[in-house]
Amino acid sequence: MVIGGALTQIDWRWTFFLPVAIAAGTLAAAVRHVPHDSPRTAATASTPRAPSR
């Protein structure tokens, strides 16, 4: 809230730009750090897995 008030002192348009910049940075970090799933074949997709303990 304080940051939003400070941004309105600079220019009110920054209050709309800042969440876009944060979302873009979050998306870029997620693409880089979240591992990809391995492709599943029809045989492994239909085979139930044993419960892990």
Rank of each mutant, 00 (worst) to 15 (best):
M1N: 05
M1K: 01
M1S: 05
M1H: 04
V2G: 05
V2P: 09
V2I: 02
I3H: 02
I3L: 06
I3M: 01
I3G: 13
G4R: 07
G4Y: 09
G5Y: 02
G5I: 06
G5S: 07
G5P: 00
G5M: 04
A6V: 05
A6C: 06
A6F: 07
L7P: 07
L7D: 10
L7F: 10
L7M: 09
T8M: 15
T8H: 14
T8A: 12
T8G: 15
Q9W: 10
I10E: 12
I10V: 14
I10A: 12
I10S: 10
D11P: 05
D11Y: 08
D11Q: 02
D11V: 13
D11L: 03
D11G: 04
W12L: 10
W12R: 08
R13M: 10
W14K: 02
W14G: 04
W14C: 02
T15A: 04
T15R: 09
T15W: 09
T15M: 00
T15E: 02
T15H: 00
T15Y: 02
L18Q: 00
L18R: 01
L18F: 01
L18K: 00
L18V: 02
P19F: 01
P19I: 00
P19C: 03
V20N: 00
V20C: 02
A21M: 06
A21P: 01
A21T: 01
I22Y: 03
I22L: 15
A24I: 01
A24M: 07
G25Q: 08
G25A: 05
T26A: 05
L27T: 10
L27N: 07
A28V: 09
A28W: 13
A29M: 06
A29S: 12
A30W: 09
A30R: 05
V31T: 01
V31M: 12
V31W: 04
V31G: 01
V31E: 02
V31N: 05
R32K: 11
R32F: 07
R32Y: 02
R32E: 05
H33F: 15
H33N: 14
H33C: 08
V34I: 13
V34T: 13
V34C: 08
V34Q: 05
P35S: 15
P35D: 07
P35I: 08
H36S: 12
H36E: 11
H36M: 00
D37C: 06
D37E: 14
D37F: 15
S38Q: 14
P39S: 06
P39D: 13
P39M: 04
R40A: 10
R40S: 15
A42F: 05
A42N: 01
A43H: 14
T44S: 13
T44K: 07
T44V: 09
A45Q: 12
A45F: 11
A45L: 11
S46I: 14
S46N: 12
T47I: 03
T47Q: 12
T47D: 04
P48Y: 11
P48F: 14
P48Q: 15
R49P: 08
R49K: 07
R49E: 14
R49V: 04
A50T: 15
P51M: 00
P51D: 13
P51R: 10
P51T: 11
P51W: 00
P51S: 06
S52T: 01
S52Q: 00
S52W: 07
R53T: 10
